[in-house]
Design a protein around this nucleic acid. Structure first.
Lengths: 336, 336
DNA sequence: AAAAATAATACACACGTGTGCAATTGAGAT
DNA sequence: ATCTCAATTGCACACGTGTGTATTATTTTT
């Protein structure tokens, strides 16, 4: 029960394996009759090309890689889902890698990518990645790379992002219009573009609306429910208490909701809560919050598109960035 | 800027590439001094082994595949996340494939798996997969396969499942104990083990509790919010109206919540809602529902464990199944 | 110092595929 | 029947790696 190769087919049909190879690739130099004979027999015996051999021969593979901090975060699993469908439709296979927010693991992943001859990579970097040296390594090996969402600025590759600055600016504007004057912001380390931009937007929003409330930003290192509870709890116990909290992550929001309920505050009357991501649960919960919804599908499509273009053109001087704007949904207005 | 191979190293160090190969693999037959010389130089010039060549040479790869209906469903992305970490720690790389609930696409995926020489596969089958012929193909190619969650019965491979029968039996018991008498069940096509088992559990629960309410089961073909709204709407407009609805999927629950709120019913007093999956939002929402929580991490670990065992032992006659019991969480009792 | 034994390295081949080039076949033209 | 040219197929090699075997280098033994 050995695997069938073109050599097996050649032997069976009294041909040379090179002829079989050409026949299967519809090379014009092979006679019509032979081509049909080969393709028929190949179908009959269930021949499947050996990609490993093809990769070795051509120094290129049909494997794309997705590198993300966490596969099971809503945003990233949406990206992977869309990206995988697109890739598969175009004859590629997708391998997934998760840095677990660790720059060290990210480095190990890059090595694995090189070892495994991946054809191209889309990546969203780990929280503590400041030095993009390991990504430069990819470039050295001429492996096309596209950053999305969480990007490195110090490296010349196409980037797909959302306009985080405008997102937070608009959020603050909306909150101010609703009468909020004490707007807090729970965000991440300022090294990363995502948080840096949001912090700029937040600050400008505060300024533009001439809010007297002292700028209140809490920087957290990890994004989980416990951290959200801790920080939100701290904010809510201070005087004056904020009348709005913006959470830069999904899980922080959950912690905040806990604490808000614990304090007996009502949303959105007593306090307004803003979160990122479009978890459909938000729409049906009675915790009427405002969500910043990112165009996941469009982001994945753009990343794939940019990567594919780099894969097809051998010119690697096209460095085109794409920025998408977010949609801000006020769930208080949405549900009856 | 070419990629460094063992031949390059050999040339540089005046050795034969076979000696370099042995040195890097710590073969005892190579002199200590040479081994160090080689490994030092390899490190210096950043040598990375070419996996494609290794795969070709050894007829085996370091790539594992995960085949699921949808990557972006909470349960599956959790599985992929855990599985990927385990795989990477053990030197494997994980490719993901999504059938989009289509048996046809599943077939194409299997072909891709064979083409790409994946070392092993864990899979959860598509909704309309009755005939597991394409999975048999994997067996023919001696590619180890482990089913999880949604399994095929007609094929002899290890299976990792949850005890869906007991889950629904217990759910009905809990509901009955709470005084429910008109318990409805929104489930999927009965061909699949997951739904078949739950339907058995539901029916036995109805019987054991001697409920007079006519068994009310709605079978749906797709699992999305719209379907949930439609079916839940239908149930709620009938007379008598159910006092409990069990939803076999995450998204069905969302639709049901919509309709329940639309009718002005309160949970859990007017009606009790049961859903699958442990989306953390459930814990903070005021829609006090009961959730059937599956041990995602344990399932992924078991699947990996079984697969790894098959990969290491060449004996492929170990067909050991693992079944996990679910945890039923009453969120009404959880939150203040 | 020569022979034997052992250690260390080199050689050749295989894995499956694709491609440049040579060889063969066939047909048409003279 | 011979020549020409095109159509078709075969041959040889390369991609990077690992391993059995032959070969060389070194040490030990007598």
């Amino acid at each position: 029960m050995k695997r069938i190769t073109i050599k097996d087919i050649a032997r069976e049909l009294n041909l040379h394996h090179s002829t079989v190879s050409r026949a299967l690739r519809n090379d014009a130099s092979v006679r019509e009759e032979t081509r049909i004979r080969v393709s028929n027999y190949a179908r009959e015996c269930g021949y499947q090309i050996n990609m490993s051999a093809l990769h070795l021969r051509g120094n290129k593979s049909n494997t794309l890689a997705v590198v993300v901090p966490n596969i099971n975060h809503n945003f990233f699993s949406n990206i992977i889902s869309v990206f995988t469908n697109l890739a598969f439709q175009n004859g590629y296979v997708v391998s997934v890698f998760q840095s677990n927010e660790s720059s060290v693991q990210e480095g190990e992943i890059i090595n694995a990518l090189i070892k495994n001859n991946v054809a191209g990579v889309i990546a969203s970097i780990a929280m503590d990645t400041i030095n993009p040296a390991h990504f430069e390594l990819l470039k050295q090996y001429r492996i096309p790379l596209v950053f999305f969402d969480r990007i490195c600025h110090g490296i010349a590759v196409p980037k797909v992002t959302v306009d985080n600055y405008s997102a937070l600016l608009e959020v603050v504007n909306i909150l101010a219009r609703k009468g909020c004057t004490r707007i807090a912001h729970i965000t991440g380390g300022s090294k990363m573009n995502v948080f840096k931009d949001r912090q700029r937007g937040y600050l400008d929003g505060i300024k533009q609306n001439k809010l007297t409330y002292v700028r209140k930003e809490e920087i957290v290192a990890s994004f989980d429910i416990d951290t959200g509870m801790q920080v939100a709890g701290k904010l809510l116990s201070e005087d004056p208490v904020p009348d709005a909290i913006i959470c830069d992550s999904h899980f922080l929001v959950l912690g905040a909701i806990f604490k808000i309920k614990e304090k007996g505050l009502k949303m959105p009357d007593d306090i307004k809560l803003v979160g990122f991501g479009d978890n459909p649960y938000v729409q049906v919960t009675s915790s009427k919050m405002i969500t910043v919804v990112q165009p996941d599908e469009a982001i994945a499509e753009a990343a794939f598109d940019l990567l594919l273009r780099k894969l097809e053109n051998r010119e690697d001087d096209i460095i085109e960035d794409r920025t998408f704007s977010v949609k801000i949904v006020d769930n208080a207005e949405l549900i009856t």
